[in-house]
């Protein structure tokens, strides 16, 4: 449990990073959200065997990481933390898809391995961008930007509250688990039945709390809309940031830069 707790405290530190003051931090959240969305769309729209064309896309996270002065090691750790999900999505590809696509020396590389690598690459690109987005904008900023762009209000309010109460929920769950650990001996008391009870308890407590929170919101005039005071300004900086990067992504999407560069180098060598 302590590991889960630490992981959650680190989610909080992602928000702390968002308190920085660099060019990227200062940009209007909408610009960052839109640019990231275009980036993700471009990355996932490649066909499944694509590898080389994906590589140039790393320029975007790399540029943001340096200009926003984010700790690379910290974000890499976060990336590794969720990596198993992507790994298990792609890990069976090499077994099902054994058509040899190309040879590296004497070793034939099957389509399964290529698509697996492609999944991992896309995972690295998209998740690292999501992390960078939150680390430069804060979760709250992303939610507000989504609402301003036109995402349904129910959705953004849910996201905001989810983020706020994640910490309370984890605290509550860890207290339950600790209480169980303190009174379980020799493996007795840690079985599935007790686990079921704990999950049930947690659900009931959550429902109770949800009711109290709703009451607290109603007491202060909540009618379904969360008003926040933030001055958003979509100026020239934002306009150029979004336009320039989107253009880069589209070019990288339709022209395989790695191949062009490779071809150019080969020609030059000859």
């Amino acid at each position: 449990m302590s590991r889960i707790e630490t992981a959650f405290f680190e989610i909080g530190s992602l928000d702390t990073l968002a308190g920085g003051d660099t060019f990227v931090h200062r940009l209007d959240p909408r610009a960052k959200v839109v640019t990231t969305l275009i980036f993700i769309c471009c990355v996932v729209s490649f066909q499944k065997y694509q590898l080389s064309a994906l590589l140039p896309f790393f320029i975007f996270p790399a540029v943001l990481l340096t200009t926003a002065q984010l700790p690379v090691g910290f974000l890499l750790k976060k990336l590794l933390f969720v990596a198993p999900f992507a790994f298990f999505i792609g890990v069976f590809n090499p077994f099902f898809d054994q058509t040899i696509l190309f040879h590296v020396g004497p070793v034939g590389i099957s389509g399964g391995w290529v698509s697996f690598a492609s999944i991992m690459l896309r995972f690295c690109l998209t998740i690292s961008m999501a992390l960078i987005l939150i680390a430069t904008t804060s979760f709250n900023g992303v939610c507000m930007a989504l609402e301003k762009i036109g995402a349904p209000r129910v959705f953004t309010v849910q996201l905001l509250l989810l983020h706020r109460y994640l910490f309370v929920l984890v605290g509550e769950a860890s207290r339950l688990v600790k209480a169980r650990a303190l009174r379980s001996f020799n493996g007795r008391g840690t079985g599935m039945t007790v686990f079921g009870h704990i999950v049930g308890q947690l659900l009931l407590r959550t429902l109770d709390r949800a009711q109290r929170i709703h009451l607290a919101m109603q007491c202060r005039g909540f009618t379904g809309e969360i008003h926040q005071m933030r001055l958003f300004r979509f100026g020239w900086h934002e306009f150029f940031f979004t336009l320039a990067w989107s253009a880069v992504f589209l070019i990288l999407r339709f022209y395989n830069l790695s191949q062009l560069l490779g071809g150019f180098l080969l020609e030059f060598a000859q």
Binding site: S138, F139, N140, L160, L161, H163, R164, Y165, V168, R209, R212, I213, L215, A216, M217, R220, G221, F222, T223, I226, H227, Q228, M229
Partner: peptide, 22 residues
């Protein structure tokens, strides 16, 4: 339980919640 009452992302937003709703 103050955790039931403080549901906004920052202290400022939380204290502003009621007046903005008014």
């Amino acid at each position: 339980d103050p955790d039931d009452q403080l549901f906004m992302p920052t202290v400022f937003d939380d204290v502003a919640f009621g007046p903005l709703n008014l």
